[in-house]
Design a protein around this nucleic acid. Structure first.
Lengths: 133, 133
DNA sequence: CCGTATCCATCATGATACTG
DNA sequence: CAGTATCATGATGGATACGG
């Protein structure tokens, strides 16, 4: 490996403080929704905001926007705004962004092994959101 | 991959709710200190509490205890208490815990590539903790 | 359509003190 | 030595409303 993760000697890269490369990686992709966003973009093409949103029904607009901005600031995704009416914005992976995909695949495999080892059950259906009367 | 990460159909495994295996993985190893703890245990032997603590000067005792308990509950590390005075507790990786190491190595590599791509600087020295007068 | 701005609840983390 | 217990706080995420 060559990179001791001993947390002495804190460094900074793109505004993130960390003590070892792994910490930096987690700072970059560790956000609650970031792996999922990158995952949906893994095909190589671009997706527009609304398509991303549809693919993650749980996420709020605020969080999607926020996480996309951070991923963009970290150089993992590209953002292209088309000056049209109505507006259109397309998101895609950059080269560094593509580098994460194999790791996400490995994470996914680990998760599946974990499930197989310990068993899965259906989650209780999410409490139905009360409709305003 | 075979496992669509589409967030429909929430599942539950060991008390964690998630929508795709990757989410589960992040729930298991995503804690702020967990990757670091697992990393320090990667040698294959065991370490006692105080040794782990020394290897992560920043972490508080409370957080170390807490994260160790969660890792243990998730079956990633083993915890052995020796009935001695003074007490001795040894931590080590279980087999599922060992499975994560290659992923952490990949994460570490990604972080290093990221640093090389975008550059690193020394972090400002951590504000010296005021000594009580 | 694709956002920003604001306010608010919750939780994760930290500081500190105490114990078997 | 290896923890618990307690309290404080700051980051994180969600609901809602509004804007170009």
């Amino acid at each position: 490996m060559g990179d001791s993760p001993t947390p002495c000697g804190r460094r900074r890269c793109r505004g993130k403080e960390y003590s070892c490369s792994m910490e930096l990686s987690l700072a970059v992709i560790g956000g609650k929704w970031k792996p999922l966003i990158l995952w949906h973009l893994r095909g190589g093409g671009t997706m527009r905001f609304s398509a991303l949103r549809r693919s993650m029904p749980i996420i709020t607009q605020k969080m999607l926007t926020q996480q996309l901005r951070e991923l963009e600031a970290d150089g993992l995704i590209s953002r292209t705004v088309y000056a049209e009416v109505p507006p259109r914005v397309e998101y895609g992976l950059t080269e560094p962004g593509c580098d994460i995909i194999p790791i996400l695949e490995a994470l996914c495999r680990f998760g599946r092994d974990f499930e197989n080892r310990f068993g899965v059950e259906e989650a209780a259906p999410p409490a139905v959101r009360a409709v305003a009367p």
